[in-house]
């Protein structure tokens, strides 16, 4: 379980996230929706401390993963990131072979035996629904894959370090409809084993794949509840207007 409690983010003077509180339960999919610049990606990148590299970044409040306080100075960022796999909007495989892309994570965490790596590569490619398409060219460059395949490869690469939580930042927005469908099916099948948090611009997508949806506006969560309920009867007028396409 991942609990965000009265969490604030500042970029210099700019108050980017304002008093965010939300709970992500195990083995559920949460969709973060809202217009551009509303803070949903900022929250996602705060969860695994990828914002640490942004100059002027400052955070207060609490995020707890199990018993770990994420913004505690004693927290080991490296092992934290291993527990929270992140996939970005642009599919960005490393300029290595398909095999080496997936083996990269396990290797940096100390797995050297070829047999073990082979097993991880095959297992995660199956998990990412990519095995059948690439099994004959595992040692070809990953840059030769299509966009949709690359994104599934990146997901397989993340799964290879056995995270508990998957953070997906608009994972399908750069892809065509068929690849998008692949990714959505993949997310649904991964839900059985992982807690998934996905940022999306596509409200239909949020409806299709998520259990819980949080609507962000100007750095605040306007409303967060079960997806069906949020889409059918939003409490807040702003949510209703956004969902019906009146702004955003």
């Amino acid at each position: 379980m991942l609990v965000v409690d009265q969490f604030n983010v500042y970029y210099g003077e700019k108050h980017a996230l304002n008093n965010i509180s939300i709970t992500f339960s195990s083995k559920t999919v949460t969709a973060l929706i809202g217009p551009s610049g509303c803070g949903k990606s900022t929250l996602l990148r705060s969860l695994n401390r990828m914002n640490d590299y942004i100059p002027m970044f400052r955070a207060d409040g609490s995020i707890r993963l199990g018993k770990t306080e994420i913004y505690d100075s004693k927290t080991d960022v490296v092992s934290l990131r291993k527990r929270m796999g992140m996939v970005f909007q642009q599919p960005i495989p490393f300029p290595l072979s398909i095999y080496d892309n997936i083996a990269y994570g396990p290797r940096i965490h100390g797995i050297k035996q070829k047999k073990q790596l082979d097993a991880i590569v095959e297992k995660t490619l199956h998990q990412a629904h990519l095995w059948d398409e690439v099994k004959d060219r595992l040692h070809a460059s990953a840059l030769g894959l299509s966009g949709g395949q690359q994104q599934r490869l990146v997901i397989a690469r993340v799964l290879a370090v056995e995270p508990e939580i998957l953070l997906l930042d608009e994972p399908a927005s750069a892809l065509d409809p068929i690849s998008t469908e692949h990714i959505e099916q993949l997310i649904l099948s991964l839900k059985e084993n992982y807690t998934i948090i996905v940022v999306t611009h596509n409200m239909q997508q949020a409806k299709r794949i998520s259990d819980q949806t949080a609507f962000f506006l100007h750095g605040e969560i306007v409303e967060a509840k079960e997806t069906d309920i949020l889409f059918q009867s939003p409490n807040d007028q702003r949510t209703e207007r956004y969902l019906s396409g009146q702004f955003g």
Binding site: M50, Y53, V78, R81, F94, P95, Y104, I108
Partner: peptide, 19 residues
């Protein structure tokens, strides 16, 4: 983005630079 992708997998700075 290559660096980010590597950090996101829990790589250290030196691992990212080297590999």
């Amino acid at each position: 983005k290559y660096r980010e992708g590597s950090y996101a997998l829990g790589a250290t700075r030196w691992q990212t630079i080297w590999k």
